[in-house]
């Protein structure tokens, strides 16, 4: 999609007046649709639809050896797949750069132990740990990928069930792990402080969140703010242009405020939803 000058001016004026082209105000998100437990082969999964953006996140767990410089920590890896059915722009290797940017941003946001505790994923210190593969599939692209993906990842991790380890046999160098047989006896991950990302877009003199595809074209620069609890876990400037330091601080303030609200809303929804595990007639 490409906009002409008149259309761009229309969008810009709307933002000035705090009434955007789809009727939202500057700090408002589009409606979201959230689904969990959608992939039965995964240990945890979530699908999020934010207007026209559709992402599917699935978590797979495998046993691995921890990094020798961090023997008490598990591993967490993100893979983003920008397939060509999301938008034709992703055809061939077109989506690769964006995919790398998103996965780097996610791993940077989750890197601090204050936002996500990896020590819970350790099984035997220095020997065995759980490795979480978080696979992110973009089904449809309608703008604002960072925000949609971060929420979907958070919910997928909340939904993840790590198998309980019953006993461990150590015989010299070989470690035997005995995992619980009961499929309902699982550990949940703590996602209290898992980061939520907010893309703050600068249009004209004002900043907005959750831009749609038309608004994304009008923006000169944007900042992705990852909010974890009350702190910022990652800030990344994206887009072409540059920002004045004061504008940057303003963007951060807005991102922080909206991010906290968004985080609360997500948590509220998750509390309401029934926990998986108590489904089925055997339990």
């Amino acid at each position: 999609m490409s906009l002409c000058e008149a259309e761009k001016t229309f969008v810009l004026h709307g933002v000035e007046e705090n009434l955007r082209i789809d009727g939202r105000d500057r700090e408002q998100y589009r409606p979201m649709e959230l689904e969990t437990d959608v992939v039965s082969h995964a240990f945890g999964s979530a699908r999020l639809r934010l207007a026209n953006t559709d992402v599917l996140v699935a978590v797979k767990i495998e046993v691995d050896a921890p990094f020798p410089d961090r023997p008490t920590e598990g591993k967490l890896e993100f893979f983003v797949d920008c397939s060509a059915n999301a938008t034709p722009d992703f055809e061939g290797r077109g989506g690769e750069e964006l995919a790398a940017e998103i996965s780097n941003c996610l791993s940077s946001a989750y890197s601090s132990s204050l936002s996500f505790d990896l020590t819970k994923l350790c099984i035997v210190k220095g020997r065995k740990c759980w490795k979480l593969y978080v696979d992110i599939l973009i089904l449809e692209c309608g703008g604002n990928l960072f925000d949609a993906i971060s929420i979907a990842v958070k919910v997928a991790l909340w939904n993840t069930q790590v198998p309980k380890v019953r006993c461990i046999d150590m015989d010299g160098n070989t470690v035997d792990i005995n995992v619980c047989q009961d499929m309902f006896e699982c550990q949940r991950l703590d996602v209290e402080n898992a980061p939520v990302m907010v893309t703050v877009c600068k249009i004209g003199d004002k900043c907005i969140v959750d831009p749609n595809a038309a608004e994304e074209q009008c923006s000169v620069g944007s900042v992705v703010v990852a909010v974890s609890g009350n702190r910022l876990s990652t800030v990344l400037q994206t887009g072409m242009g540059s920002l004045h330091p004061l504008t940057l601080v303003e963007c951060l303030k807005m991102g922080h405020k909206v991010g906290k609200k968004l985080d609360e809303a997500v948590k509220e929804i998750l509390e309401k939803s029934p926990k998986g595990g108590d489904v089925g007639f055997l339990n």
Partner: peptide, 9 residues
Amino acid sequence: FYQTGSISL
């Protein structure tokens, strides 16, 4: 601009 870790606003 890039930041990582955990820093208050």
